[in-house]
Amino acid sequence: MAQKRIVKEYSELQKNPPLGMKISLPSEADMHQWQILIDGPKGSPYEGGVFTLQLSLPTEYPFKPPTLSFKTKIYHPNVTNDDKGSMCLGMLRADEWKPSSKIDAVLGFARRLLSEPQPDDAVEGGIAREFKENKKEFIKNAKAWTKQYAKK
């Protein structure tokens, strides 16, 4: 059943991709690994960059939440600054996830998080503090990282 639903959601997203996103499968044989390219939202310090994300759907999907991680380094309070680039999304936590949630919603949420970081729910404390106390510095750093890592 998982497979069928994933194929369905994938084809729907191919037909109507969310704004500023490109979804593809790195390997045609594996429907559980998606690659997503997100354009940095306008007006955010990430504007002009293209970020690669990986969406992994567990075999138990939709009963278990998918995981979303940044393959491109990004200066953001809600994304871990390591090679995993895990993203902290409330709706993706095991106890918050609902089988009726759709990937479309997950992606929309991720994009919104880029426009509006949530420092109170941060995984990178340093960046969150900077975001709260010295926004100018944060924007400068985020722009610099975007230029360095997320060039088109």
Binding site: M1, K4, R5, K8, E9, P62, P99, S100
Partner: peptide, 13 residues
């Protein structure tokens, strides 16, 4: 096309 209210939220059929 069928009404989306007829779609199961789990299997999307």
């Amino acid at each position: 096309p069928y009404d989306h209210n007829l779609m199961c939220a789990i299997c999307h059929s």
